[in-house]
Nucleic acid binder design. Structure first.
Lengths: 193, 193
DNA sequence: CATCTTCTCTACCATTTGGTAAGTGGCTCT
DNA sequence: AGAGCCACTTACCAAATGGTAGAGAAGATG
């Protein structure tokens, strides 16, 4: 496979699990069985690598959400679809949402590229919620707060493995499905007119 | 003030904001205007410092939650009180929940000491939810999933400053109060019989 | 007064870190 | 066949990292 893509994959996993600062280029190089300079050749610097990893992750989330939305009916399904998409992504690439959280914590400049990719989707979601509320399809509230809460609940439950362990659960397919239902119940209850 | 306590305070803030790996003992020493060896004298090693910081944070959260519970009435108030307590703590010490999240991501051994402190509270919460469901006070569902979702939503909204920014908000007292209401609305809707 | 403990310091050190410099082998294009 | 680019290498390096060794000052205790 493409060396560049292999680096992105391994770095993405390691950045998400160990954190960016705790991941050294030497570590990555060792895992990939290339030299550190190969990584630097492709990405220029560690920050450059992080930027590309972040963009990749944002693009994948964007694609997943967009696909979900494209297959959805207007109304409640437009809320359910992105949540289902996010959970599906969390199952397929467990590290991805954790990575986006890490990037968001680090703030600019790496978080900028994520926002660039996702901002239109965010704005669209806020607008859609507002429209639904104006039309009486959804109960009236602040769509921005609702969106943030939904995001926090969704990424939280699939990211916090240690917290799940504390209540005696482990994140497998079944638990993920039940968590998704819980989150969707939250949302349905909060949006029901 | 006590040097030991000053180290704990600064380390707690830095571990939460920069992450543990991105915080060097030299950084902390510089901020505190002591030498790195003074820190090592009090905590033995960086891991030792992290353990004590984690325990401190867990104890403070425990105290806050317990105080909230002590002042609460049976029934719905037992759900609302800890959420209010968590939000109050997030306002008073903004870094604390972020720190616990960081510790939870790092996993054992530092996460062990947090669990040791909070596990009884977690078990108590699950039991209380179960009792309420059995008594018909709450709608029936899996109390563990509910607890995890509530935790994820609560810590998420107060931790993800960057996400708030993406929808054009900033975490101040007013926004925190409205987020708290949103989260409580989620919970009320999910628990109403 | 002498001694012990507590706390902080100066002086080092081995390792790891991100990054630079300078090739090397292979492929394509002319 | 030779020129040039691409992907990757070996050889370094300065700075930062967590940690050790040991000493000095201050107060408590006999």
């Amino acid at each position: 496979m493409n060396t560049r893509q292999r680096v992105l994959d391994v770095a993405s996993a390691s950045f998400a699990e160990q954190g960016v600062a705790a991941t050294s280029l030497d570590d990555l190089a060792r895992q990939l069985k290339v030299t550190k300079q190969t990584i630097l050749y492709h990405f220029g610097s560690k920050d450059g690598l992080l930027r590309d990893v972040a963009r990749d992750a944002a693009l994948e989330l964007h694609r997943q959400l967009q696909d979900g939305l494209n297959d959805s009916q207007p109304g409640w399904d437009r809320v359910e679809a992105p949540v289902r998409a996010a959970f599906a992504l969390a199952v397929r690439r467990p590290e991805l949402l954790g990575l986006l959280r890490e990037v968001s914590r680090l703030g600019p400049p790496s978080s900028e590229v994520v926002l660039e990719v996702l901002q239109p989707l965010i704005d669209g979601a806020v607008a859609a919620l507002q429209t639904g509320m104006d039309a009486g399809t959804f109960r009236r509230s602040d769509p921005r707060l609702l969106l943030v809460s939904a995001y926090a609940a969704t990424t939280g439950v699939v990211t916090e493995a240690e917290v799940l362990r504390a209540v005696g659960l482990e994140l497998d397919l079944r638990v993920a499905a039940r968590l998704r239902r819980t989150v969707l119940d939250f949302l349905r209850a909060a949006l029901a007119p």
